[in-house]
């Protein structure tokens, strides 16, 4: 189960609304490299991880991604406060506005709704961990692209925080991949799928390959 803390992981106080930035940043809410997909990816993948450290890291990073999802929605919410219909039209936010007004809806920057097609849960630990490493890089580059357009320090500051978290997660998943391969046949990591095929675990303390 999960419990809620009544605060953001990192503070967000955006003084100047800017619907044009909101239209771009919503991408990290419901887009292909976004926080919703990240959270669902890790929380779904943990069931087929055979090793306890990897169940722990997927649970914890999947949980942190939910906190990032909340930060992204807070940014979009604050960027779209107190706007007139004229300002919404000028900012190009009018197409989003038709179906959602200023409510928060998971879609990408061009308005395509969130799709589970954007992530994988393969039931194969090595394939999943490589997907996770790639996912962290894709989120990192999306934040880099947001930073190319964001000028307001109130927006840049939390986006930079989120970008750095992707790099830390990438590091942890790299360690997770190493833990996985250390349990496998060093001559052929792909001899079997440890989440599906029957195999003999190496006894504790056995260092032989």
């Amino acid at each position: 189960m999960w419990s809620y803390q009544k605060k953001l992981q990192y503070p967000i106080h955006i003084h100047t609304p800017d619907a044009r930035m909101a239209k771009l940043i919503i991408d990290q809410y419901g887009g292909p490299h976004g926080e919703l997909g990240a959270s669902l990816r890790y929380i779904s993948q943990r069931y087929s991880m055979p090793w306890p450290e990897l169940k722990a890291i997927l649970t914890d990073i999947g949980t942190e991604e939910l906190a990032h999802l909340e930060m992204i929605s807070a940014i979009v919410y604050q960027l779209t406060r107190n706007l007139t219909p004229e300002q919404i039209r000028e900012a190009g936010f009018d197409a989003y506005f038709m179906d959602h007004t200023t409510g928060i809806y998971p879609a990408d920057a061009s308005g395509v709704p969130f799709s589970a097609q954007t992530f994988a849960s393969t039931g194969d630990p090595l394939a999943d961990l490589h997907e996770d490493l790639a996912a962290e890089q894709k989120a990192r580059l999306t934040y880099d692209n947001i930073l190319r357009f964001a000028k307001d320090p109130d927006v840049r500051d939390p986006i930079k925080f989120l970008r750095e978290r992707e790099i830390v997660h990438y590091q942890r998943f790299g360690e997770a991949l190493r833990i996985a391969t250390d349990h496998l046949d060093s001559k052929n990591f792909y001899a079997l799928n440890p989440a599906f095929d029957k195999w003999k675990r190496r006894p504790a303390g056995d260092k032989k390959a």
């Binding site: 605060k7 942190e64 830390v168």
Partner: peptide, 22 residues
């Protein structure tokens, strides 16, 4: 709140570090 966030951030970093370095 800023003080709490700072402590919680350090705790969280150590927790996910300890997931892969138990």
């Amino acid at each position: 709140l800023r003080k709490i966030r700072g402590i919680q951030f350090a705790i969280w970093e150590l927790r996910i570090f300890l997931d892969t370095h138990p």
